[in-house]
Design a protein around this nucleic acid. Structure first.
Lengths: 229, 229
DNA sequence: CGGGTTACTTGACGTGAATCAAGCCCGATA
DNA sequence: TATCGGGCTTGATTCACGTCAAGTAACCCG
């Protein structure tokens, strides 16, 4: 573990409430790995061996079916996964794959389970982290059930931008193929959705997307001011 | 609070780890209400006032959009909601409505926040509870993204039945309209999906559904043995 | 510089599910 | 008993999105 990792570890909600000495003690059981783009951290259906905390790089969580797979969520530095599988000691529901080269904190499952049961601050951190995830997942389910593909793309782009801003450039968290999976559509449909938003001031080039008028886009997305409320 | 409520309270994962005296102390801040069918417990967009724990009856969690609403999840005795909104002190993402007459434990938000921060066992219970919810939500997202309406219905019915069983009768957690919402389809499509499953041995009458051959249904649902793994 | 690979876009077409619209069943009410 | 109304089913039609198939652009490697 490098000394430069500590600030990254502290940034995670999971550890926000844990005191310095306790944290140091906990981390003796852990190690950090630098892994290449495409590395698989855990595979759907396998038993949880480690809790992973992303220190740098981005990770994609994928659900796999017969001949298909769909990206469920993007994760970045500070995110921990898969807390639920580790805590409950059951198999993973998802496959996690690095989308970049990245550094990952590895925490043996049994040690983490014991710690979270013993240390109130860590459990509280886990509650905060899981609460945040619960909300993003609920948001995604609502989007899938209530919104069209174009509206979902609008909402997704707006969520990448700061609130109440003028023209902005946002950076997609992955290639178009991955974004399409996150939105629950095919890459082709995503391409068409971007085309449909172009008259509304969304001009895309590669991974950078310019939103000329966020207010107009927000209005179009259906009166969705309640989105993150 | 009635004495008959205590066993129900103990059944919830949230309190499983909390010792008897601590529990009694915590509950002094709470009260229990019996509410009629259709009562709204919290409304999307409002600030969290109470944590609710279902003691009896069933509750539906609904997402609301412009002119539409969709059932996101059914809850029953032992379930607590909306922990994330209460813990993070942010507005609800969902509206909760009683589907039956039911008894609900009401826990003032500020008191719960303080308790969960102070009491490791309670925080740990919350971690367990949220971990379970995380997994059901992930399952639902995977279903929405990867499965057709008919496959989703199959998976949903199978999840209601005990594993590895012969012919069974399952009870839907709500009317067809609600089940359709949970599956992300319209009631008409649900009706057609049931019709499509009839040749596979699914015969429905009202809220009771008979699955003549769960193994065959499971195979049909796509090689989804990994569903809850 | 050429050839290949990968990522994205665009077009034509098919299909699953929504929508519109009856019709049916059954329980509640007078 | 007659009438009403809500929940469910069924049929016809429409539409959003998926699928299949080119086509283009950018990048890598020989």
């Amino acid at each position: 573990m490098r000394t430069t990792d500590m600030p990254l570890i502290r940034r995670s909600r999971l550890f926000a409430q844990v005191g310095e000495p306790d944290l140091a003690a906990m981390l003796t059981a852990c190690f950090v790995q630098t892994l290449p783009d495409g590395a698989v951290l855990c595979r759907q259906g396998e038993k949880a061996e480690f809790l992973h905390v992303v220190l740098s790089g981005r990770v994609g969580l994928f659900g796999e079916a017969a001949r298909d797979e769909a990206l469920v969520e993007f994760l970045g530095p500070g995110d921990a996964f898969i807390v639920p599988a580790v805590v409950l000691d059951v198999p993973y529901l998802l496959t996690a794959r690095l989308l970049d080269e990245g550094r990952i904190l590895m925490w043996p499952a049994a040690a983490f389970r014991a710690q979270v049961r013993a240390t109130g601050q860590l459990a509280y951190g886990a509650v905060l982290l899981l609460s945040g995830y619960w909300r993003t997942l609920i948001g995604q389910i609502k989007d899938l059930k209530l919104l069209s593909a174009i509206e979902r793309l609008s909402a997704f782009l707006l969520a990448l931008a700061p609130r109440d801003t003028g023209p902005v450039t946002v950076t997609l968290p992955g290639g178009r193929r991955l974004v399409a999976g996150r939105l629950g559509i095919t890459p082709q449909s995503l391409s068409r959705a971007f085309a449909a938003l172009r008259p509304l001031g969304v001009s895309g080039g590669g991974r950078e997307v310019v939103i000329a008028d966020p207010a107009r886009l927000r209005e179009f997305a259906g009166v969705r001011a309640l989105k993150n409320t």
